[in-house]
Write a protein that binds this DNA or RNA. Structure first.
Lengths: 197, 197, 197, 197
DNA sequence: AATGAATGAGTCTTCATTCAT
DNA sequence: CATGAATGAAGACTCATTCAT
């Protein structure tokens, strides 16, 4: 999951803070909050040892929150990019799933959902769990917004968005465990949609 | 998730190995493989430090594998107990979801899926991922078996079982993040079932 | 350094105690007293875990003393076998060095002197050091005995035996570090011998 | 074996790294690589636990390599200090042996050769053995250099240096086991020297 | 005479963090 | 703003030994 929003340019290399967030997001997705040490993040980000506490005064938890937020924003962009050009909810969902599946195939990494990998097992449970909830509700309401835009009633849109979210999370996990991206491509067919969309 | 298969009796207390597995399964479910230290498992199991390597020569990974297997078996029992007395797939699924939801309400713990929490972020990736795949396929095929028994064709049973599995995993995660067991109770209604069941 | 004194026969396999001594002597020679764990000795000797304290009630130190003694006896046999058929001290010394060098070439193991490897770094210094002294004096006096038998005065024999012993130990160590058995073969030429022998 | 090269001054105390090397060299010499725990080294060096891996990222093996190198350098200084003012090889060798013998008498410690004690039984055999070989060849060539300077042909110098080295190692070991420094003082008389030196 | 389960002190190492510069 | 040396608590794991059988 590269970052299209921050364009690296020869004259102005991506700043240290962004490199830290990017490295942390990738590593936490693969092995979870406690599975990755700061040393590894620092080395992958090519950041000097002491610089972490400059950008993230509270240390690892701060970095985890920031990297989960960044990864969540990437997902929101992906959702928007998939549903905006679509003429029906099914089409949007299908595009999203195919993009996601391709990501697995290209990177070959089979990382987990960056938000849950990062925040579900953090040390200070309450703030992490609240932040994860906030981010996930953002995903669901983004999907719901497109559902309404594409003709669902608010209630149908809410139900469908949440249902799609759960299938996506469960499917992501099953794809990961099977190393098979087709699981994700098959998700839209499982949605129980009304006749209109 | 208590253990109905091993009945503690005054004359024969639960042996050390079982106490280790039980404690590990609970702690890993809550905070993940890397989030729990052996010291905590040992103290919760009231087991002496050195005894772990007697029962699990390969240490923490061995214990994680055993505890995930045990927790998976508990889930298989729960699936069987829910579907066996049922007259339709929907009824079985509903019972299962209600039992699961009650578990969250009673324990108040909001643990994650014991298998994914334990095995997804383990150190030795390949064996852990393979074992998780094996256990999850067991869940799916158990549900599929009941689907066929209750009238589905094999193909429909397979699709429905996998779909139900994904909704369950995604729903479990959403319930956890929202601290709301109703998310799970609402799952059966989201299944796209044929008319016959 | 196999054991010619204990002939293994199909009907009567080498007893556990001997297997333990043999395995310990080999392993201690290679990596020293503290460098080898009982688990490895037990497994190499194919001896059950608890049997060690039957044969060696004081545990590892007992086993170390026994294995050093056994290895020292092997060396005494080698000295005798080399000097007894010899017509001069030089001839005996040359035979001994060649046999020793061949041992390195055949086994390919480059172990250290079994006595010093085992006893110099033991835990309870005094008894270990005294035992090592006792064993080494045995080597020296065996060589001295053959020196006198082959024509040296007692004084010359004593000096030559001790000198040969030191060259042997120093040469063994240099051969080990260079992985070159010729160092040992060259030792006899370095002895400062009187004209008569 | 104190360190004459690093003069402790009130304004600038010997840095942590040097204290670690010094403590490790002493302890390894006495009880071997595996016979000394890091805890003891740390406490003797008055260094905090975590600082070891700051100075020696590879931990105990790194420290062992560094301490053996330092101890070897001390020996090279001792060789130079003994042979440089000498008018003959015998005189240099005698001075060296007497200095060494005094060291045993003064310290009362009967340590082993710091290089072989430290490196012969290390865990990662190959690098340790290669480093020991490198250090020992340094000793031998230093002696050989003085041999040539004092009139030996290159060949005689090489033979004598190696012979002296082996007597020194063997004598060191015998002195240690007998607790008798006179063994070392007697070494020069055992050298088989040509008439010229 | 022989065994293997059980033990807790000890091993080396990595951790996230703080500090002086 | 930025750095890398320094820290001690905690990490997983191995050790030689004891004990009941």
């Amino acid at each position: 999951m590269t970052d299209p929003t921050i364009a690296p340019s020869p004259s102005k290399p991506r700043p240290t803070k962004d490199r830290l967030i990017f490295a942390a997001a990738n590593l936490f997705s693969e092995r979870g909050y406690h599975g990755v040490g700061l040393a590894e993040i620092l080395s992958q980000a090519q950041a000097p040892k002491g610089s972490l506490y400059h950008h993230f005064p509270n240390g690892k938890p701060d970095l985890a929150l920031a990297s989960a937020t960044w990864a969540s924003d990437q997902m929101l962009l992906l959702i928007a990019a998939s549903f905006e050009p679509a003429d029906s909810f099914t089409e949007g969902a299908t595009t999203l799933c195919h993009k996601l599946a391709k990501l697995f195939d290209y990177t070959g990494k089979w990382s987990g959902c960056p938000v849950s990998s990062t925040l579900f097992e953090g040390p200070d449970n309450a703030p992490f769990q609240r932040h994860a909830a906030h981010l996930f509700e953002g995903w669901i309401s983004e999907v719901k917004y497109h559902g309404q835009r594409l003709g669902f009633t608010e209630e149908d849109a809410a139900t469908t968005a949440q249902s799609f979210y759960m299938l996506l999370q469960g499917g992501w996990q099953l794809a990961r465990v099977r190393r098979d991206s087709d699981v994700i491509r098959a998700l839209p067919a499982l949605l129980k949609l009304g006749d209109t969309c």
